[in-house]
Design a protein around this nucleic acid. Structure first.
Length: 542
RNA sequence: GCGCCCAUAGCUCAAUUGGAUAGAGCAAUAGCCUUCUAAGCUAUAGGUUAGUGGUUCGAGUCCACUUGGGCGUACCA
């Protein structure tokens, strides 16, 4: 429909000069009295042309050659909006399109042939994933889904580091717990990993090797075993909420492949780095950032910025058209340096999109739970999934704008209460499935032959809501804002539940029943496809 | 101190490049199951969009300041 309206304005612009360099926006008005689509062109132009907006609207409207079979009414309202009203015949056409499109209705090929890389989670294997990681995991996966729905070929990627101080401490934590199991007296430092899982890993080692690891260094079997077991758990947790990564990129390979070394050379050649106090510094201040930062410590060890830049270079070398990083807000100070570095080296950073999500505040019994992997003070994602079900967890994280600070009330999540609207959506889907089962025993078959019989208020509303789905997908994908899908689905389900209450199928006259059946079938497809994007199941019964 | 993010109904959150009467769910109150699943529907109530000023035809949205919170601000990642 928007395409049609654009073409109308296109034609009119041959007579009205001022329409030529205007980017038109059609939006869905807040109120049905204002039509199905609304255009604020006159309001925008009135400022530029210094003319009365309503008069401008009159002039524009009289120059539009509207096809009455598509739009039966177009009128000026309020300060100068032009409101368009669809004919029911046009509106009903969407039902056929949806039934025809089926599982892929809503997909577009806008970005066909393009490749995207979405990096998310990227937690180092030092402990189980927490509820805090859940938001990153779910949102990242859903963004990847959305990109696939608009045509991208998407690689989900997990970046991790199994070297460095954190991992040394991890290995030594396991070593101490192992010695403890052998009966040694140990001093377990406060800043070591306190979690029970460390003891479990130590037990596994004892079972496997007996006491033969007494003189094993922390960074040998202890660290390796820890990494291996923790990573296995992380993958299992992710898989329990339907997330599977195509690629795991280990920071170590950057050293093995000499990418760090090469990067240092390039930075030096470009005169972007210098030595001071025995360390290597990068001239971030010259690149527009706050201050110069150390990239190689005086000990010879790189800081995280250097491998981060090297890592992103590999993404550019792998020729992605779109590179997405999803981080928690604790990274908001680090990514500008990485971007600046890449840009200085000549990479097209407009291909990159860094998304920052705000933290989840865990609330239990009215108190805020502070989480720390080190102190073993956390609630794992596993616990949450076990108690609240994967669908609830996914929906909960999907339904909020990632830039909003969200509270997660554990008690509520565990209760599986109506607080979580995912049931509302799933219930709508289950109700439709139930109807379909019923009618198959009768002699009713969904038909699009008599859609004009769908003429009650709620039926028309439902049809018009269906029109918006494809656009919601596209808009959400372009803005990387997944919560729009949830808002849309809740609105759709709400109208459907009204329809279910007021528009009976069984018992209605045959032609009407079959038309309503077609409408219900279309709603089922859209709800299922929407939930599919969110990674949430659409159950047939509840 | 400085930087980024945030503040909307009792609670959790929406609000389409700045647009029309700020909307949902939960909680509350009052109704609706002999008829396709009541995890549903209907109705009522709930707001100085943290505060003050500014920009303009028009501000929850943009700007300035104030207040309150989150995250950063390392030769940690």
């Amino acid at each position: 429909m928007k395409r049609y309206l654009h073409s109308l304005f296109e034609k009119a612009s041959s007579r009205l000069e001022y329409l030529k360099d205007l980017t038109l926006h059609f939006e869905i008005p807040p109120n049905a009295d204002f039509g199905d689509l609304s255009c604020n062109a006159a309001l925008l132009l009135s400022k530029k042309l210094k003319r009365n907006p309503r008069a401008l609207a009159e002039e524009i409207l009289s120059n539009l050659e509207i096809d009455k079979s598509i739009i039966f009414k177009a009128e000026i309202a309020g300060p100068g909006f032009i409101n368009f009203f669809y004919t029911p015949a046009y509106a009903n056409g969407i039902i056929k399109k949806i039934l025809l499109g089926g599982d892929s209705f809503g997909r577009t090929n806008k970005f066909e042939g393009k490749r995207a890389n979405v990096e998310f989670v990227s937690a180092n294997p030092t402990g189980p994933l927490t509820v805090g990681h859940g938001r990153n995991a779910v949102c990242g996966d859903t963004i990847a889904n959305l990109l696939e729905w608009v045509g991208y070929k998407v690689d989900r990627e997990y970046y991790f580091n199994n070297a460095g101080r954190q991992m040394r401490v991890l290995g030594d934590s396991v070593r101490l717990r192992y010695l403890e199991l052998l009966g040694d007296e140990i001093q377990f430092p406060d800043d070591y990993y306190q979690g029970e899982y460390i003891k479990e890993i130590a037990e596994d080692l004892k079972r496997e090797y007996g006491d033969s690891l007494r003189d094993e260094p922390a960074e040998g079997k202890f660290k390796n075993k820890a990494e291996q077991e923790i990573f296995a758990d992380i993958e299992k947790t992710l898989s329990s909420i339907g997330i599977k990564f195509a690629l795991f990129y280990n920071e170590n390979t950057l050293y093995q492949d000499k990418k760090i070394e090469n990067l240092l050379t390039r930075l030096k050649e470009k005169n972007l780095s210098y030595e001071k106090d025995g360390a290597v510094w990068l001239k971030f201040s010259e690149l527009g950032n706050e201050q110069d930062k150390v990239i190689v410590k005086s000990t010879g060890e790189p800081t995280y910025r250097l491998p981060d830049i090297a890592y992103h270079i590999t993404k550019f070398e792998r020729n992605y058209d779109l590179i997405i990083d999803l981080f928690g807000s604790d990274h908001n100070a680090t990514y500008p340096d990485v971007v600046a570095g890449l840009q200085a080296l000549g990479y097209d950073t407009t291909k990159m999109k860094v998304l920052i999500h705000q933290f989840v505040t865990i609330v239990e019994n009215g108190e805020i739970v502070k989480m720390s992997t080190r102190k073993a003070n956390y609630i794992t994602l596993d616990e949450l999934v076990n108690e609240a079900k994967a669908d609830v967890v996914r929906y909960f994280f999907n339904m909020r704008n990632i830039s909003s600070h969200m509270n997660f009330d554990l008690a509520l999540a565990k209760k599986q209460s109506d607080e979580n609207p995912v049931f509302y959506l799933q219930y709508a889907h289950a109700r439709i499935c139930s109807i379909l089962k019923m009618v198959s025993e009768q002699k009713l078959i969904a038909s699009t032959d008599n859609l004009h019989l769908l003429n009650t208020e709620v039926e028309l509303q439902l049809v018009k809501k269906l029109h918006q789905f494809s656009e919601e997908i596209l808009k959400s994908a372009l803005q990387y804002e997944i919560h729009h899908i949830c808002v849309y689905l809740e609105e759709l389900a709400s109208i459907f539940h009204k329809f279910y209450t007021f528009c009976r199928i069984l018992g209605a006259e045959k032609d009407l029943a079959e038309a309503r059946l077609a409408l219900a079938g279309a709603v089922k497809i859209v709800i299922k496809n929407g939930l599919n994007v969110l990674g949430v199941n659409a159950p047939e019964t509840m």
